[in-house]
Design a protein around this nucleic acid. Structure first.
Lengths: 223, 223
DNA sequence: ATTGTGGGATTGTTGAACGATTCTACGATA
DNA sequence: TATCGTAGAATCGTTCAACAATCCCACAAT
């Protein structure tokens, strides 16, 4: 049955616009296309070998994901989050993740494990002085938390929030170093959860958000 | 300064695709285009006098809003929420709205008033046997709750969840009667908030979700 | 009843075209 | 020197026509 599900993904080949959008998303998140950069329809379309119409469809997709911003008759630009955006982003995360974390005792073991595992891996890597994937590990931890809610829609929206946050890190020139700072926090949260003190874990998560928001926002005031 | 903000809205005339999307969204939400209906590019584009390309951009917009679903090489259809969708929707609402409501004591008076006012109006109308806008009043109440979080992103996403829920009501043939049932719940929640017993209000909201979810899901099992 | 197999309809994508809007650079004016 | 206005270039917004790819439906064969 699992093979059928796999094949399904192969059969549902994405449209050209979807594939272009995926590629552009990756480039933006990898930092190859800097925030604020204007994406010319002609230049990008020519380079990728797709028509303007198809490319515009891809742009719409990414605009909805908040990766790009669309200005009428001016074109699309890689989003450049401001300090206000960061505040909004963290206000949303606080509600979503703290709310999800409070469900800790009502969810499946698999869901709980999706929260613990990323931290365990990050700790293991940190002990080996391997800081290569600390960023994605931190994201995985928070994805796990959102997953406790058991809503695909909420998880999808959170992924969009995380992507936008990545752009903010990029603007703040703090892509990797940033996440690394907060591993101790994540450990503490998992520890509190394992102790059965869920409310304390929620409070700890809330403090993490305070610190992270302030840290990031302070780096975004200057241009 | 307020006039400037108004003019801005005029200046930022929406693109054709955006206007088409807005019109289609309204038609769908009003029930003129039934869930499950396939939207032919040629038919709709011809009727609205826009090109296929522009129409397809509008479709993409609405697909991201979960108003339409897009099946490759088959076309776009008005979304037809299933019982599983309803479960997912309420799982998301539970986390978002209960989380937002817990912020009651930390927000501005204006934000709190945005929660109370819709219930007050609904009560006034109900006393006059005027049940015309009870649906939108219920939605306004919940929009107000989400607004407590103070995140435009979260409010936008919630609007999408509400729109999707409207479609579910449509499928369940319960557009107006549904909301009406839950006015007493809303009153009780506001009452508990005014008493300063926020946690009890949150619990009441959670029970509302349980009841609403079960009611709606039970009407969606049959086709 | 199930399984090919056509043809017809619809979508996916392209390329060109042209009006509308924005940007840029240069010169006029104070 | 600084501000303003303007013509021309560049780019976006939208349409149209075309064709390949895909799906749907009816009909025939087993």
């Amino acid at each position: 049955m699992s093979t059928l599900a796999q094949n399904k993904a192969d059969l549902e080949r994405a449209s050209t616009a979807q594939k272009v959008a995926d590629m552009l998303r990756e480039r933006v998140l990898l930092g190859e296309l800097e925030p604020g950069l204007r994406l010319s329809e002609e230049a990008i379309g020519g380079a990728l070998g797709v028509s303007r119409n198809t490319l515009r469809e891809a742009f719409r997709l990414l605009t909805r994901d908040r990766i790009l911003v669309h200005e009428h008759s001016r074109g699309v630009f890689v989003r450049r989050p401001t300090a206000d955006d960061v505040r909004d982003l963290y206000a949303a995360r606080r509600v979503i993740e703290c709310g999800a974390l409070r469900l800790w005792n009502d969810v499946s073991d698999a869901q709980r494990e999706a929260v613990r595992a990323p931290v365990r891996q990050a700790v293991a890597r940190a002990e080996k002085k391997d800081f290569s994937k600390t960023g994605s590990a931190n994201i995985q931890f928070h994805r796990g938390i959102v997953g406790l809610a058991g809503s695909a829609r909420l998880s999808d929206e959170s992924d969009r929030l995380f992507a936008e946050l990545m752009l903010a890190f990029r603007v703040a020139h703090e892509v990797e170093a940033f996440h690394q700072t907060y591993l101790p926090w994540n450990r503490k949260i998992v520890e509190l959860l394992n102790n059965g003190t869920v409310e304390q874990a929620v409070q700890q998560l809330d403090e993490y958000f305070d610190a992270a928001e302030q840290d990031l926002a302070s780096r975004l005031v200057a241009d």
